[in-house]
Amino acid sequence: MGISVSQSKAVSLYKHPKRFFILSTLIPLVLWFVAGFISRITPYEDKFLNIASILAFIGLLAPIVVAFIFISKEPRLRRDVNGRFFNFREVKPLYLLLACLIMPVSILLAQSISLLFGYSHKQFIITGEFTFSSGIFPVWFLLIIAPVLEELAWHTYGTDSIHTKYNIFKTSLLFAVYWGIWHLPLTTIRDYYQSNVVEESWIYGLNFLVSIIPYVLLMNWLYYKTGRNIIITIIFHITAGFFNELFAPHPDSKIIQTVLLCGLATMVVLKEKQLFFQHQ
């Protein structure tokens, strides 16, 4: 089943994808490259990373500020967005459960599969340690606030603005490519997650980019199946980062997770052809 006629009419209100994504890219791009430069000033000092983290956080805020400006100018957009925070009557419990479980179950299953190849059972230990640092901000804070801020931009304005031009499948693929590129400047910031992943091995950096594709397909499936509920996407996004840090998965387990997510996304797309391929 595709999205309803009323949803299609609401989506059609989001008319400026080019402006939104250009502004949501250029502002973080400048701030994050500056942050990357500052974070690597030698000799290394915490104060440099702290300054870099503040600039990085301001860059993270940019898309939501852009979305707010676009939405605030149009009363119909404001009503639509406000309604999508509280439309839980349209959310079947199954989709809420899936939003909570897909990412943690996939990493636990990936770690279990890795045991068959000789990887350590210590991956399942909750160490309380994180694989990256975030300057002045606690890592646990960023693991929660970053998904909230991103989804308040991507799924208030961004995703629907692409969907005015393309079906959900193409919308998801285009956004996945964009989102991967959007993250690239973060690889320049010392000790940040993306930076550490790339420095560990190019293949792990490539896996991060590839994993975005099934991740976005699954997130948008949940988004449109729940009447474009924004809270669902925030939950899904938080679980993705939080549970990969809660445990201690080997980087190769994350590759296995990507394979699992690709398989699940493929099954979902094939089952939900009408949803993904209907014309807007």
Rank of each mutant, 00 (worst) to 15 (best):
I144K: 06
H155S: 06
T164A: 06
Y204N: 13
P249F: 03
H183Y: 04
T187R: 02
D160V: 13
Y204G: 06
Y157W: 07
L206M: 09
R228M: 13
Y166N: 06
E151M: 08
F243Q: 10
E245M: 15
W182Y: 08
S172H: 06
N244D: 05
L152T: 12
H155D: 08
K225Q: 02
Y192R: 00
I189A: 01
I234G: 08
T159C: 10
W140Y: 14
V210G: 02
Y223S: 10
I238R: 03
W140D: 08
P249C: 00
Y192N: 01
I168M: 11
I136A: 05
E245I: 02
V177L: 01
H183T: 10
W140N: 12
P249W: 01
V197M: 04
S161G: 03
Y193F: 13
N167Y: 02
I212F: 00
I181W: 03
F247N: 08
Y204S: 00
K165I: 03
I234P: 15
I145N: 14
L143I: 09
P214A: 04
N220L: 05
R228K: 13
F169T: 10
F169Q: 02
L174F: 15
G227F: 01
L142D: 08
I238K: 11
P214Q: 06
L152E: 10
Y157L: 08
D160A: 05
H250D: 08
I145A: 06
K225A: 03
N167G: 05
L152P: 12
Y204Q: 03
L218Y: 00
M219P: 09
H183E: 01
I168N: 09
S201Q: 03
F236H: 04
L217E: 00
T233P: 05
E199C: 09
H163I: 02
N207V: 03
F208N: 12
F242A: 05
F175C: 07
T239E: 12
N196W: 06
N196I: 14
M219Q: 14
N207Y: 01
T233M: 09
W179H: 04
L186N: 01
L142T: 09
E199Q: 13
G158N: 13
N207P: 09
P185S: 13
T156S: 13
L142Y: 15
F141D: 11
E245A: 07
I144F: 15
I238P: 14
T239G: 12
I232Q: 09
L209H: 03
F175W: 09
F247S: 08
P249N: 04
I213H: 11
V139Q: 07
H183V: 02
V148Y: 14
V177M: 01
I189D: 01
I181N: 03
V177N: 00
S195L: 14
Q194F: 01
Y223D: 07
S211A: 09
V210Y: 10
V198D: 02
I234A: 06
S201G: 05
I213K: 07
T239R: 06
I144S: 04
